[in-house]
Amino acid sequence: MTLRDRTLALTVVVLWGLNFIALRSGLDHFPPFFFAALRFAVIAVPVVLLVRPPKVPVRWLLGYGLGFGVGQFAFLFWAMDSGMPTGLASVVLQSSAPFTVVLGALLLREHLHPVQVAGLVVAVAGMTVIGWDRAQHAALIPVLLTLLAGLSWAFGNLSNRLAATDEPMRLMLWMCVVPPLPMFALSFAVEGPTAGWDALAESPGAWRALAGLAYTALLATIVGSGLWTALMSRYPASSVAPFSLLVPIVGIAASWLLLHETPSVWSLLGAAIVIAGATAATPRVRRDVTPAHLDLPAPAAAAMQVGDRVGTVPDSGRGNSH
């Protein structure tokens, strides 16, 4: 990956790591399935009215929305509402990275180089250290639910990849149209027909929940998922997915600072191992290879312009190692 695309991937890491704090604010006030439906509904309504659908097969759009949107957030919010600590959730959810790489190799025939495999193993080992340390204070069911969320995200990644669109931002936005109806139906069946709307009408604590909703809809979904969709459409899944292993580092640090979830020495050690492994698992390409155009939101477009200027600097002799 080029320097600019690595920078964009790290931007997604920060946005998604902080997103766990926003999710906790929302889940402290709203029922989990209703909050998941609301998260996507506030995006879906203007998208249907204002944005042209992407030219992709409907099956891949539905697969992306059902995997990334419905499956991931139904299981994740259910887990967090059932007692999954915020920092631990940010760790276990990154199981999507090895799930994506393995499924990409099995289903899409993507080739894995030995260095990628070794780096991925190291990163998963670091994630395991963090998970083992934190899981001592968590029940088993929330951990399993979060693993199912990671698996759902992986299937969404593959559908995104198979869509092979040159309009990744439109794909991401229309992906948000898929989850609201299934999630509202699930909320109606499990949480009751009025539980979510009653919480929406309650004023005590509502402002924090609504602030969390705004962050997760605008920054985490539109900007973060938009960048992620663009990168997944440009590179093999095995090149992009390992970056998500860095999200727990931001998630744990934010939970420590804002929610007073103090990380242990083992968690910090595991975080360092994750960073090393994810770096090794991400292949490099020559700077003189021009990436395909990425259809990005305004903040991402500005970042790309900066990356273009940085990309003119020689690469100190470091070529395409793969």
Rank of each mutant, 00 (worst) to 15 (best):
V101S: 12
L181W: 00
A253H: 00
I141N: 03
N19G: 15
R284A: 14
D5H: 15
V285Y: 03
L112M: 11
L107C: 06
L62W: 11
V102E: 06
R52C: 12
M175A: 09
D308Y: 04
I273S: 01
R161P: 14
T146D: 03
R234F: 08
V101P: 09
P236W: 03
A125H: 04
A220W: 01
M304W: 05
S90D: 10
L38T: 01
Q305F: 06
V117Y: 06
Q136H: 08
T312A: 11
T279H: 09
Q305H: 13
P291R: 12
A278R: 04
L259F: 08
R170L: 12
V265F: 11
G251A: 07
V102W: 05
M80T: 08
A138I: 03
S187P: 13
S203L: 13
G26K: 01
A118F: 12
S25H: 09
L93N: 08
S159C: 15
A292Q: 14
S25N: 07
T128M: 08
L231K: 09
A211P: 00
C176M: 09
T86D: 00
M183S: 10
W132M: 14
T312P: 05
R39G: 01
G119N: 07
A164M: 11
T229C: 11
A123W: 07
L151H: 02
V13W: 01
F188E: 06
T146S: 13
R109W: 00
L15R: 05
P179R: 04
Y215K: 00
M127R: 07
P283L: 04
